[in-house]
Design a binder for these strands. Sequence first.
DNA 1: TAAGAAGTATGATTTAGGTCATTTTTTTGC
DNA 2: GCAAAAAAATGACCTAAATCATACTTCTTA
Lengths: 229, 229
Amino acid sequence: MLEKSHKHITCKNCLSRKDSLLCSMTGEDLEKVDSSKSCSYFKKGQPLFIEGGLPRGVFCINEGKVKVYSRGEEGKEQIIHVATSGEIVGFRAMFSGEPYSVAANTLEESNICFISKDDFLDLVDTNPNLRNGILRELSKELADRASFIKNMAQKSVRERLAAALLILDDIYGEDFINLSREDLANFVGTATETLIRLLKDFKDDGFVTTHVRKIEVLDKEGLIRLAGV
Amino acid sequence: MLEKSHKHITCKNCLSRKDSLLCSMTGEDLEKVDSSKSCSYFKKGQPLFIEGGLPRGVFCINEGKVKVYSRGEEGKEQIIHVATSGEIVGFRAMFSGEPYSVAANTLEESNICFISKDDFLDLVDTNPNLRNGILRELSKELADRASFIKNMAQKSVRERLAAALLILDDIYGEDFINLSREDLANFVGTATETLIRLLKDFKDDGFVTTHVRKIEVLDKEGLIRLAGV
DNA sequence: TAAGAAGTATGATTTAGGTCATTTTTTTGC
DNA sequence: GCAAAAAAATGACCTAAATCATACTTCTTA
């Protein structure tokens, strides 16, 4: 259980610092970030921002998980990305100058820092390292999404589920994957019922086991073979 | 028919200049681009770069069309983007420092300029306008791809075809859409046979007409309604 | 701690769209 | 201008996965 305080989290002490684009800065830049940001505790399911909203700044996840998604016609969510500790969320709309094209909600209770648009853009402008980091990050994500598109177009739901479980296993690290069946289905891009059935198959085949809602990956190799990555 | 010469195309005279991130620069920066780039004529179907290759620079389309795609398991292409005059192709891998995650081929004969990695990165580093333009461009593309993913997951092939035709109609401007049925299928993310059948339906319904392989959009409004955009 | 609400699971049914086979049309190269 | 190859079109068939209906479990919170 996270502390429900709103106390400031010093970047220097941030556990996710080494993995973070933002907090991996040094010297006075780091101090600048530190002094201009605010930190908040988010309950599970709270929105960071909504589709169509206007961006006021970026969010840096100190601890927790955030789903980035977009809603289709009948309200069905497509989860584009699951962000974890150290990641910056919401910086795309910052540069495009357009409203958010996606929404973001916490998937569990989280501590999340916020840096205002001006401060962030100022940092990007004056700090070549951060800038290059962001360019690199954007490019990588673009590559990720190209392969996401390809998978959606060419792979079966079964293959996509295997791939998704591998990605999520990475994101959740030592913890079990902790997503509702519906969220998982919305990440894989399928109906919840189909997801549940396939997950059962995977259990029968020994690829995973479940602890109520949580999913434990037992056979990575098997999933890799199945996903055809 | 384009001139098959390799003569230098001066950025100042580039017809696509107004639409181009790169050539919309001014003064000495423009001259710098101009002097450091080389221009080539590409036949239809020629590769600019291949998946897994190492990037040496970026391509700027003076005239022509380029498909950006990625190949799946059985070699089936998924077309991610169709680039046209004025667009820069291949700058993502430039920043990520990784091999190309996608490939690019001309879809028709094209005049394409090339700027080396060093020159390009130098420009990005020293020219804040270009830099911001690139950040904006990357962000927009990221948003595009999120909606691409959502469409693949939630829309029917019929709806996706309608959406694809609208996008392509924009890209081809005054010209008719000129893609092989296979390429179109690989853009929509479906089997070629399915695409041909649906295209016939669209013809019967008066949304489009075909001139041999070329496709003319007759009823944009109708397609918009169908695509549910 | 009981009741209601969410979330998970399973069964039955339908269908969009993939696959394979074949024919027809268009393009390409000699 | 003709033969061969490539692309487009059509038909027959099949299955992965969606949808709808219902039941069962696990969380909430009153």
